[in-house]
Amino acid sequence: MLAKEAVQDERPCCAFSRRVEFVQRQQRGKRCKRYHLEFTTADPYWRITVKGYWIILGTDVTDQAAQQEYGRLWAPIGEKYGATVRVLDPEVLVESRSSRRVLAVEFPSYEQAKACYKDPAYTHAKEFALRASQRELIIIEGDLA
């Protein structure tokens, strides 16, 4: 059910629509962290934003200079897109052959995660990341909480 329909529905038919109605009672402009909903004054309906993530599986760093350059170039790019990097415990790699590092890069929305990857500045920075180690990157949407 779309959020727009959930707001108009008189009898909530699911937990999501009940949550929309509950959060709707709060002041305009506030955000519901659980469902990433925002009620705006311009649009009388809820807008759903789903977080986006890069999940990066990488080998050990073999070129420290390239890794440092990537880190230097990544900082302003990550800030521009509101990215937060989380280094995960390598023990989450249950069936890994070569990966030794796991990172989750969180973005405010899935669209921002995709846009960041396509950004020309990131394309340049990515060259250094690929020189520093072998890695695999996937872009997903959801909430890893």
Rank of each mutant, 00 (worst) to 15 (best):
V85W: 06
V94L: 07
L57I: 08
P90H: 11
G58N: 02
G58L: 10
I56F: 00
R101E: 06
E106D: 12
W46A: 14
S96L: 05
I55G: 00
D89A: 08
K51R: 14
S96T: 12
V105Q: 05
V85T: 13
V92P: 09
L93D: 05
V87D: 08
W46L: 15
E106G: 04
D60W: 11
P76L: 08
V105D: 12
Y110I: 09
V87F: 05
D63L: 08
R100F: 07
Y53I: 09
Q64N: 03
Q68P: 06
V105L: 15
S98F: 14
E69H: 12
F107V: 12
V50P: 03
V94Y: 07
W46Y: 15
R47I: 11
G82D: 05
R97P: 00
R47L: 13
E106T: 04
G52P: 11
Y70D: 00
A83L: 13
I55K: 01
Y53G: 02
A83Q: 10
G71M: 01
A75C: 04
R72F: 09
V50R: 13
W54I: 06
I48P: 04
V92K: 01
Y81C: 01
G52T: 10
T59K: 10
L57R: 06
Y70K: 02
E69K: 15
R47M: 14
E79Q: 15
Y81A: 00
Q68H: 10
R97H: 13
G78T: 02
S99D: 07
L88C: 11
V50F: 12
R101L: 07
L88N: 07
V94R: 10
W74P: 05
S98L: 09
V50W: 11
L73P: 09
T59Y: 04
K51N: 14
A83N: 03
L57Y: 08
T84P: 03
E79V: 10
V85E: 06
Y81Q: 01
R97Q: 13
K80F: 03
Y110F: 15
V87A: 13
V61Y: 08
K80D: 12
G58F: 04
A66V: 03
R97N: 04
V102Q: 10
D63F: 01
L57S: 08
I55W: 01
Q68F: 09
W54D: 07
Y70L: 07
I55S: 07
V105A: 06
Y70M: 07
I48E: 14
A104T: 05
D89L: 05
I77N: 01
R100G: 08
K51L: 10
L93H: 10
G82E: 09
A104E: 02
W74I: 02
D89F: 09
G71V: 05
T49H: 14
P108Q: 12
A65P: 01
T49M: 01
R72K: 14
T62H: 05
Y70S: 00
D63S: 03
Q67V: 10
A104C: 13
V87G: 09
S109C: 08
L93A: 09
G58C: 06
Y53S: 02
I48D: 09
A75D: 06
L88S: 14
R86M: 10
S98W: 15
A65C: 02
V102R: 00
E95A: 15
E95T: 08
W46R: 04
Y53D: 06
W54V: 05
R101P: 03
P76E: 11
G58E: 11
Y81D: 11
W74H: 08
R86T: 13
